Simulated scan of single mutants.
Amino acid sequence: MYPCMLQAVHDHGIGMAALNFSVSDFSRAGIEFPFLDLLGDGFTSFRWASELLMTASNAVAISGTVAYGTLVHPATFEPTCDAYAPAPEREGAGATTFGAASVLPGAAGIKSLFKPLGDGTESPYSEAFWRNVTNQPSFANGLTCDEMVRYFNTSVSTGENAPVPVRGRVEAKLQTFKGGKVWKGVYGIRLDTSFVENNYLSCESLRGYGGRT
């Protein structure tokens, strides 16, 4: 079985101040497949992110993502302006939920429930691991690649937004899986990060890529 990961995020404050250009905040979620040797060099790792749910009202973000060959499902999100929300008290202290549903009924959806690890419980995946997989360049059809550089070491990732190891459950209905999938007891990390994104790069230009963080 090949490893995959859920990435559910709310992108905020996107733009280029020098050009007075900005993109409205939006949410996105998808199941991604890291550690792919797209170039066949035995070294450079890429993430395959071929299918996403994205905020239906953000046409700019959707069109920019479709340009990679990504299958995008315009969607609604819960919460609408964050990557997670407090779960009902019965789920335990610190538990959070996330949900995305395609505007086209039944076409696609993702739900998750995560809880912080209990005292004395350690995640098998270090922060360095998450920094590695989330900073691998991504692709959909393999013609162009996206380099999103996530920084785990800025003031954005401190205080209440500092990394928190979590464990929980993920449900996904996507064309990638030809139906529904459920994963239980999966590990993750919850945090805020700043990032810089370089769009529409030649995948070949990233040969030998080892990250920038």
Rank of each mutant, 00 (worst) to 15 (best):
M1Q: 01
Y2F: 03
P3D: 13
M5H: 09
L6C: 00
Q7L: 13
Q7C: 07
V9N: 13
V9A: 14
H10E: 00
H10Y: 13
G13F: 11
G13V: 11
I14C: 00
G15P: 05
G15K: 04
A17D: 09
A17G: 03
N20K: 07
F26Y: 15
G30A: 14
E32T: 06
E32I: 11
F33K: 00
F35Q: 00
F35L: 00
D37Y: 11
F43E: 05
T44H: 04
W48M: 14
S50W: 08
S50K: 12
A56C: 00
S57N: 14
N58Q: 14
A59T: 15
A59V: 15
S63E: 14
G64H: 09
G64E: 09
T65S: 13
V66H: 00
Y68P: 06
G69I: 15
G69E: 10
L71A: 06
V72P: 08
P74R: 05
T76L: 06
T76V: 08
A85H: 04
E89P: 00
R90V: 12
G92T: 08
T96F: 03
T97I: 15
A100R: 04
A100N: 10
A101H: 07
S102G: 12
L104G: 02
L104T: 15
P105A: 09
G106Q: 06
A108K: 02
L113A: 05
L113G: 00
K115S: 15
P116G: 00
L117P: 11
Y125T: 04
A128M: 12
A128W: 08
F129D: 02
F129M: 06
W130G: 04
N132Y: 11
N132G: 01
V133W: 09
N135V: 09
S138K: 01
A140T: 02
G142W: 12
C145G: 07
E147L: 15
M148F: 05
M148P: 01
F152P: 01
N153W: 06
N153H: 09
T154W: 09
V156W: 13
S157E: 03
T158L: 09
T158Q: 12
E160W: 06
E160C: 01
A162Q: 14
P163L: 05
V164M: 08
V164D: 01
R167G: 02
R169C: 03
V170G: 03
V170W: 01
F177K: 08
F177A: 07
F177P: 08
F177V: 06
G179E: 05
G180Q: 11
V182T: 15
W183C: 03
G188W: 11
G188Y: 14
R190E: 12
D192C: 15
D192L: 10
V196C: 10
V196S: 13
E197K: 09
N198I: 07
N198D: 11
Y200A: 10
S202M: 07
S202N: 11
C203I: 11
G208A: 01
Y209R: 01
G210N: 08
R212W: 09
R212L: 13
T213P: 14
T213V: 13
